[in-house]
Write a protein that binds this DNA or RNA. Structure first.
Lengths: 158, 158
DNA sequence: TCTGTTTGGTTGACGTTTCAACCACTTACT
DNA sequence: AGTAAGTGGTTGAAACGTCAACCAAACAGA
């Protein structure tokens, strides 16, 4: 039996500096990427993420729940997002043949071409705002950390 | 005159993996921290950030615009957030004496004690979800990157 | 087969963020 | 002093996300 600390693990000055930089950086970065997409292509980051997954899937089609898991959004959120995208003619819904409850989202041709254009904007943003500011080794460290964060918060469900 | 690349700087496979880990990790991490605060203390992350800044300021009081800049939120957002917190008795508004337009937000005693409790929850989350998953060197790399991201996106306005 | 439970997905109400428009005060210029 | 431009802050509506309740299909066990 391992002893688990019960009192609060306050951050030291350095940890606090880094945590605040992280928080501020994430806010500013996501805001900028979102605004770029929104003003130039009428898409939000959330919508864009979903379109990327769809475009990569066989048949450009994915089940709703799978989509939600892939982008780490709630099922409800994905339902709403897909409804909006459907209204815009960017995706369609299709009944799933194997599972009577199931619904798949499908990227339309129009949607695909919207995505193709938006991708330029998005990738340039990621590159210029983030990657340009991250030496290769630091960037790798970032990846290691975030992969572990995901593992922690997706496994541990008890 | 430096040549600036005009075509899209597509990410290689490794960069893409890291970028997606970042996106997913941020989503999952922020969601969890937010939910922790919300269920245990009735505060959102955004509200919490603001309370932290107020608690550290001389007189537990900061001008609205300064507050917005400190947490990287829009002025409008801060107005709404402060209104909500005011309704809950956690902050108060005060006219600024030096500048007739100015308004300061002020943390109440009640607000301070709400914050004191919430801080335990929040810090434990940051520690367990993030810092625990980040070796010291990697964590330092994270800090370097995010500080540069902030500098890039706050300076470069042209 | 009947029943209880789990999973997939949607819905509507509510809370939060954004956006654009706006008012009021301050500052700089002439 | 008078006016144009900038800054501080608020407002209300629209867009978005969350939450809890819900329905329907699938599954597991008697």
């Amino acid at each position: 039996m391992t002893k688990i600390s019960t009192d609060t693990p306050w951050l030291d000055a350095e940890q606090q500096r880094i945590w605040r930089a992280f928080l501020g950086g994430v806010t500013v970065l996501m805001d900028q990427l979102d605004r770029d997409l929104r003003t130039k292509h009428g898409l939000s980051m959330g919508e864009y993420e979903i379109l990327v997954r769809l475009s990569e899937a066989p048949g450009r089609s994915i089940r709703m729940a799978e989509l939600a898991a892939a982008v780490s959004h709630s099922r409800s959120r994905v339902t709403h997002t897909i409804s909006r995208l459907e209204r815009a003619g960017i995706v369609e819904r299709a009944q799933c043949s194997e599972d009577g409850r199931g619904v798949s989202a499908l990227l339309t041709d129009h949607g695909f071409s919207v995505l193709e254009e938006a991708a330029h904007t998005h990738v340039r943003g990621v590159h210029d705002y983030l990657i340009e500011n991250a030496p290769t080794d630091d960037f790798a460290a970032l990846g290691r950390i975030m992969e572990r964060v995901i593992a922690t918060l997706n496994g541990q469900r008890f």
